[in-house]
């Protein structure tokens, strides 16, 4: 049996082991991505094989948070894909305005940049005060970062171009205070943000929301898990609620294609029928 096949077997066993030991469910994640991430983790933890990694994981709970950082790719940035935020302003915000109070779910918020971007958009649109944002993720360390709202200054400065491209009305610097080489977002932005641990793979709907923004999370899932996520979103959304996805994601090729209509194909914004 060749090494690759063995690696695959080990991979399956490992994700099962993680599930049993820590109840984090990676069993339905895209195999390609998992393979790469685990290979990297194996290398970083200096394990001879995934089996060895598995043994250590089972016995050393302290190792798991570190592995989680490899398994959950935390890549994100402020106003990532500015067109998305622009489209939100154009197509979604006017509808949100019609509700007496608004709820938004940012699923897979990673370290919080997306949530803060949304909060800024809402603040500029005068909606922030009546909005509750749920920002959820499975990586507790990411959530903690998000909760603190402290980011590297250079990364935030780089985002001001995106901010303007997203229709920003002022200056991004209005929303944070800088110290040394870090910036801290105005806590007022996060006053109505609920950062919480929630897994699209195992957990249930927790609230009724008007907009779900789940970007660049589904790309790590296989088809059936994507479908699970879509049905969560469908259940969570009010009728005529909005679903925003990442630049390379779509609901149209899933089993739920008939339950959503396209609002903006380019910005990947859909609406529950």
């Amino acid at each position: 049996m060749d090494a690759e096949r063995i690696f695959e077997i080990e991979l399956e066993l490992l994700v099962e082991a993680i599930y049993q030991r820590y109840q984090y469910d990676f069993r339905q994640y895209s195999r390609h991505s998992l393979r790469r991430r685990l290979a990297r983790a194996q290398e970083q933890f200096q394990c001879r094989s995934l089996s060895q990694l598995q043994e250590r994981l089972l016995r050393e709970p302290a190792l798991f948070p570190r592995l989680l950082d490899y398994l959950t790719v935390p890549t994100t940035e402020l106003f990532r894909d500015p067109a998305y935020f622009l489209a939100l302003r154009r197509h979604v915000v006017p509808y949100l305005r019609t509700y007496p109070s608004v709820k938004i779910w940012v699923a897979g918020c990673s370290t919080g940049e997306e949530a803060y971007s949304l909060a800024i958009v809402l603040a500029e649109e005068g909606l922030l005060d009546k909005t509750v944002l749920y920002a959820t993720d499975i990586n507790p360390r990411s959530i903690e970062t998000a909760r603190q709202g402290i980011y590297r200054a250079d990364a935030v400065r780089e985002a001001s171009g995106n901010y303007r491209a997203a229709g920003g009305r002022g200056s991004l610097a209005d929303y944070y205070s800088a110290a040394y080489d870090s910036v801290r977002f105005d806590p007022a932005l996060a006053r109505n943000v609920v950062f919480a641990d929630h897994s699209l793979a195992t957990d249930a709907v927790f609230a009724e929301v008007h907009l779900v923004s789940c970007r660049n999370v589904l790309i790590y899932f296989d088809r059936s898990l994507q479908d699970r996520a879509f049905s969560l979103f469908h259940d969570a959304l009010v009728r005529q609620g909005f679903l925003g996805l990442g630049a390379k994601e779509t609901v149209l090729l899933s089993d739920h294609k008939d339950q959503f209509e396209v609002i903006s194909q380019d910005a990947r914004i859909f609406r529950k029928r």
Partner: peptide, 12 residues
């Protein structure tokens, strides 16, 4: 999607 994932992983 795979490409996007790869890209993200790369930037990670």
């Amino acid at each position: 999607e795979e490409l996007q994932a790869q890209q993200e992983e790369l930037s990670a």
